[in-house]
Structures are given as structure tokens and as C-alpha cells.
């Protein structure tokens, strides 16, 4: 079925269209959720809440930009909300101006490997890394979303990249030893 038609039907709260949209995008959106939330239960809750918002607020989508992008933003916002509610979402707020730009994480890193590495990152690092490196948000947008300064966002990203690099090295050493 045509996506525009599905969107139109979803705007009229058509249950079949909602199911169709969910079955098309749930896997993709769940992968987004899982990059932010380690806990399976939290991830499922966030996905349910995200799709609930997508279906109930679909009338606010005016067709500007891709629908997938709009859904992704809803999902990311929901994940950030969930993280903010958690007590342990305390970001290391130390500024790191003196830290040089970290090397780029190798893009050849497989998805599953990256997921494993991300799982081992502190929540703050993981969130900023996800927002900047994968979702493509700018530091200004990240700062606005998380209520931090632009410099904090930049320094957190550098620290996150350093940590990822260390984790990858450690992993490679373990594999060589094995």
C-alpha cells in the first residue's frame, strides 16, 4: 500500500492502517530505541509510547520532510524523556576543551559490534554519541534537547569516542589473545 494512503488512513484512526504502519517501521524504530535504552523492558515501553504518540499525533505531520524522519524524531524524543526520568541519567558535566578531537570511529564497525560497545558506554556518552553520530543532530540541537551547553555536548562526544576506541582496542586484544 502507498505510504501517503496509509498516513491518510492513520489520520482517520484506521486500525488496519495503523497495524500496517507498525509492521513496516517497528523493527527500524526498535533498533533506534535499543541504541538509547539498554534495558529491554524500558525499550519496549518506549517503543509502545512512541507509536502511541505517532498514531495519536499523526495529524501534526504536515508532509514536510520524510515521514520516517518525523517518526524517528518522535522515537528519539521519547527515549530522551525516558532517560531523563531515570535517576541514573547523570551526565559527567566536566568540560573538556583541552581534549583534542578524537579519531573517527571506524565506519566499518559492524552494527552488532557497535551495539555491544554502546551498551558498555555510560548513558550520557551513549546518548550524545547516538544523537550526533547516528541521528545526525547538531551540537546546538543536542544542547537544547538535553538542557546542557554546546561545549558540554562537544566534550561529551569526544570522551565518548575515546571510550569507544578504548573498548574496541580492548575487544581486539581479547580476540587476538583468544
Amino acid at each position: 500500500m502507498d505510504l501517503q494512503k496509509i498516513i491518510l488512513l492513520c489520520k482517520n484512526q484506521d486500525a488496519n492502517a495503523q497495524r500496517h504502519l507498525y509492521s513496516t517501521y517497528s523493527g527500524l524504530m526498535f533498533s533506534v530505541v535499543k541504541r538509547y535504552l539498554k534495558n529491554e523492558e524500558d525499550a519496549e515501553d518506549a517503543l509502545i509510547e512512541s507509536f502511541f504518540k505517532i498514531f495519536t499525533k499523526i495529524n501534526t505531520y504536515k508532509g514536510q520532510g520524510s515521514f520516517e524522519g518525523w517518526m524517528r524524531r518522535v522515537v528519539v524524543n521519547e527515549c530522551l524523556m525516558k532517560l531523563r526520568k531515570k535517576r541514573n541519567f547523570t551526565m559527567a558535566l566536566e568540560e573538556a576543551y583541552d581534549i583534542g578531537e578524537a579519531e573517527m570511529i571506524t565506519p566499518s564497525l559492524a552494527y552488532q559490534d557497535l551495539m555491544k560497545v554502546l551498551e558498555n558506554l555510560p548513558t550520557g556518552y551513549r546518548t550524545i554519541f547516538n544523537l550526533y553520530e547516528i541521528e545526525g543532530y547538531k551540537h546546538r540541537e543536542i544542547a537544547e534537547k538535553l538542557g546542557i551547553s554546546i561545549n558540554t555536548s562537544k566534550s561529551q562526544l569526544i570522551l565518548a569516542k575515546k571510550r569507544i576506541r578504548d573498548l574496541i582496542k580492548k575487544k581486539q586484544l581479547i580476540e587476538r589473545a583468544g
Binding site: 517497528s26 527500524l28 526498535f30 533498533s31 519496549e44 517503543l47 565506519p107 557497535l114 547516528i134 545526525g136
Partner: peptide
């Protein structure tokens, strides 16, 4: 970003209960 296109389109199986 170089990671973006590589990891944006990955899908994860969603449990039916969701």
C-alpha cells in the same frame, strides 16, 4: 557522518506482545 548511513537502517525484531 560516516556511521549514520551504516547504522540508521538496521532493524531489530520486535516481540509480539509490544
Amino acid at each position: 557522518n560516516e556511521l549514520k548511513p551504516l547504522h540508521q537502517d538496521n532493524t531489530v525484531e520486535v516481540p509480539r506482545r509490544v
